[in-house]
Design a protein around this nucleic acid. Structure first.
Lengths: 240, 240
DNA sequence: GCCGATTTGTCCGTATGTATC
DNA sequence: CGATACATACGGACAAATCGG
């Protein structure tokens, strides 16, 4: 991302995370920031808009921009934003391993089309994977990729990162993801593939992913053992 | 909200929801929209930015703005955005009742301060409520309000809507909410107050709410019976 | 493969409105 | 009331991606 506002957003965000602007303090005024970054008022406002949307600041009309960021505890596996499992692994090195259970080509039936949003008859690649963290099988992922958008998925690709493969080798850009989180009773398959012990409920993240063309390229169901699941999010009620 | 871009956002959003611009179709070009709404290019872009952020459209560089909205099924109680239980009830009339279990003044101890983000010694109003839908006790809410920000909460206020009371009677504006979703084992209290049957896990939404001044005014833990819980969300990876 | 028309993406400078102090 | 600071909007310019001829 080489956009000016994005670079400014990152710089201020990093300053906040490093404690330069502590919780409840005010950022320098927009005029000062405009001078400091030698850019226009609009560009600063855009950067501030992203900071607000991401839960870092709360602009107060006529007063200033207050920091509302606090250090999160990062003990469990945290979802939020669009991030592949592999990326999350690298970010907070949880000695993770992936086992590919299934990799096959399927055709979207009426039923799966309704459930996933793909068109009937569409060629799909079904991938089923178990994620192990410190040896424990905690997550069961079931992905359906549009084969025409993400062709040539091998077991080796599935074992590392399909997202990285799609973005780097195929030039596909992941843009938007719609998700739903529910809690479901464990099935026999969950019980077989995951280390559940006496746990009989799972956190389930069901998502649709669109590329930069607005084409649905993936549907995923990610089934998590609850004791390692945490989803974080910032919502805004009042538009600025 | 009297902002121009917000009115335009709502109008286009409603058109999309009503099927004027169906899934996978393109909106009129920015130039056409600018003419249609007789406003500036920037204002249209801002409205489109909100539509994108909310998961309605995916702008495609050099091509157009593609609609990616699809009608959601709305069978279960859906969270997402900042909405009070009372508002959700009115939106999708689920014959809901609220029972106030506890209403008392407390002082933030070291432990609750750490857990909630309030300052030690801060005066708080503790509210514990059970939400019944069609007679079944499905949700247990435990709220902590900053008493100085939201004073005078009565059992009657708690039975209807504290948010409405705060916004209408006290002039407090709810602005930002940070949330975490986890799955936890049911406690004895859950079992006593909710209709759980043989269910032993709950979906738990823990949130911090800030007002338009960036002051933390509320911490809530909302414990849901899993079969009526669904959280929806749209995430964006590629900034426009 | 190149060029030009169309369309989205970024940035600037400026003006005006409104809330806070 | 005036100074400061955020909020909205306009108009213009140029860059970058797409598509058709």
């Amino acid at each position: 991302m080489k956009a000016r506002y994005d670079a400014i957003y990152r710089e201020i965000r990093d300053s906040i995370e490093q404690g330069v602007y502590p919780y409840q303090s005010f950022l320098p005024s927009e005029a000062e920031l405009t001078a400091a970054f030698s850019c226009s008022h609009n560009t600063i406002r855009r950067a501030l808009g992203v900071l607000r949307e991401q839960g870092y600041v709360q602009p107060v009309h006529g007063k200033g921009v207050r920091v509302i960021y606090q250090e999160p505890e990062r003990t469990t596996f945290t979802v939020g934003g669009i991030e592949s499992f592999h990326e999350a692994d690298e970010r907070i090195h949880l000695h993770a391993q992936t086992e590919v259970v299934t990799l096959e080509q399927v055709i979207a039936t009426e039923k799966t089309a309704f459930r996933t949003g793909f068109e009937v008859g569409c060629e799909l690649t079904l991938v089923k994977r178990v994620r192990r963290i410190n040896g424990e099988a905690l997550i069961l992922d079931r992905n359906l990729f549009r084969t025409s958008s993400v062709p040539g998925i091998t077991r080796e690709v599935a074992r590392t990162s399909i997202y990285a493969y799609a973005e780097k080798n195929l030039g596909v850009t992941i843009a938007t993801s719609k998700r739903a989180i529910t809690v479901e009773r464990a099935t026999g398959e969950d019980r077989t593939l995951l280390d559940l012990g006496d746990i009989d409920y799972l956190a389930v993240v069901t998502s649709q992913t669109f590329d930069s063309q607005g084409i649905l390229i993936e549907c995923t169901q990610s089934r998590h053992r609850p004791d390692h699941f945490c989803f974080r999010d910032t919502a805004v009620r009042q538009r600025l």
